[in-house]
């Protein structure tokens, strides 16, 4: 556990007045507040730090204790014990958390060692009832897993949640599960759970939205004379007719053979095939001779 310089966090000097501390806190809070920085873990961490710094420095008693014991935080425990003994004689009546909208996880170990797990400070906050903390989680899936809707049980903060994963969910898409976040504060509603899908594509297909893309090698003779080839689609095999004289990089669109459209049951995007002409190499003497004959005919 290392010493945390709360003055440095708020960017104020050790002699800063209450007003200067308040102004510094407000300025930083406006910059790093989670509501203004959605999905920004760095800002969230920073916001917790400045809150913690403010908890200590905006309270004269805490600030005095921090200034006295800050660097020697181990001694603060003894200080705390003595203080608790003193408080118990006066029927300690403060109710649980005085920090309404922050859970104990929001404070550093250093803070807890100095000021106790539930905070022995008293903060003049309104008793506003707040929605619980929103949780964020990542779910890693393979592309094949999301071709069809399916149910999966996931564990978030030791709670098992049965989740229906819709077919066609996008990579990095975030879905909200209402009420599965942190518990509400002061009787407020529970927070929400935000799940970000990370889709790993280990197939031969490339995906762009609902469309799939695949490259198919085409031999010279089929390309010139036409024919039929069997190709793999995402769901199975398909037979394709090749027109005589098919050029390299020709694209063919197979309607409805792409990826399921998100939340539109039974609807699919397209599969776009690009033909890559394979020119034969290592020709035999006979083949070369025949090609030369063909060349003469042109």
């Amino acid at each position: 556990m290392t010493f945390i310089d709360y003055y440095k966090i708020l960017g104020v000097g050790k002699t800063a007045t209450e007003k200067e501390i308040k102004n510094a806190y407000r300025k930083l809070a406006r910059k790093y507040h989670p509501d203004l920085n959605p999905d920004n873990k760095e800002a969230e961490k920073k916001f917790k730090e400045i809150n913690e710094a403010n908890e200590v420095l905006s309270n004269s008693e805490n600030r005095k204790k921090y200034d006295q014991y800050g660097k020697d935080w181990q001694h603060a425990e003894e200080f705390e014990k003595a203080k608790q003994q003193q408080q118990s004689q006066h029927q300690y009546s403060q109710q649980g958390f005085s920090s309404e909208d922050f859970s104990e996880q929001d404070f550093s170990d250093y803070f807890e060692s100095m000021f106790g797990r539930t905070g022995t400070y008293s903060r003049q906050r309104s008793k506003t009832k707040f929605k619980g903390q929103d949780f964020n989680a990542e779910l890693h899936l393979n592309l094949k897993d999301i071709y069809e809707a399916h149910q999966q049980i996931i564990t978030v903060n030791n709670n098992k949640i049965r989740l229906t994963i819709p077919a066609g969910v996008e990579n990095n898409q975030i879905i909200k599960i209402q009420g599965k976040g942190g518990k509400g504060v002061n009787g407020g509603p529970n927070g929400d759970l935000y799940i970000k899908f990370i889709i790993n594509n280990n197939t031969q297909f490339k995906r762009d939205g609902n469309n799939l893309y695949a490259n198919i090698d085409l031999d010279l003779y089929t390309s010139i004379l036409g024919g039929e080839i069997n190709i793999d689609t995402f769901k199975g095999k398909a037979k394709l007719k090749i027109k005589p004289g098919t050029q390299n990089e020709t694209k063919v669109r197979l309607k409805g053979k792409g990826f399921p459209i998100y939340k539109q049951e039974g609807k699919f995007g397209d599969l776009i095939i690009t033909y890559h002409l394979k020119i034969p190499t290592n020709l035999s003497a006979k083949e070369k001779e025949l090609f030369k004959e063909l060349q003469k005919l042109r």
């Binding site: 407000r26 809070a29 509501d35 506003t128 707040f130």
Partner: peptide, 17 residues
């Protein structure tokens, strides 16, 4: 609208917006 509404309350009360 509750989610946004709470956010508005927080912006107003916590950040003086």
């Amino acid at each position: 609208q509750i989610g946004d509404f709470e956010k508005m309350i927080r912006l107003h009360t916590e950040l003086n917006v």
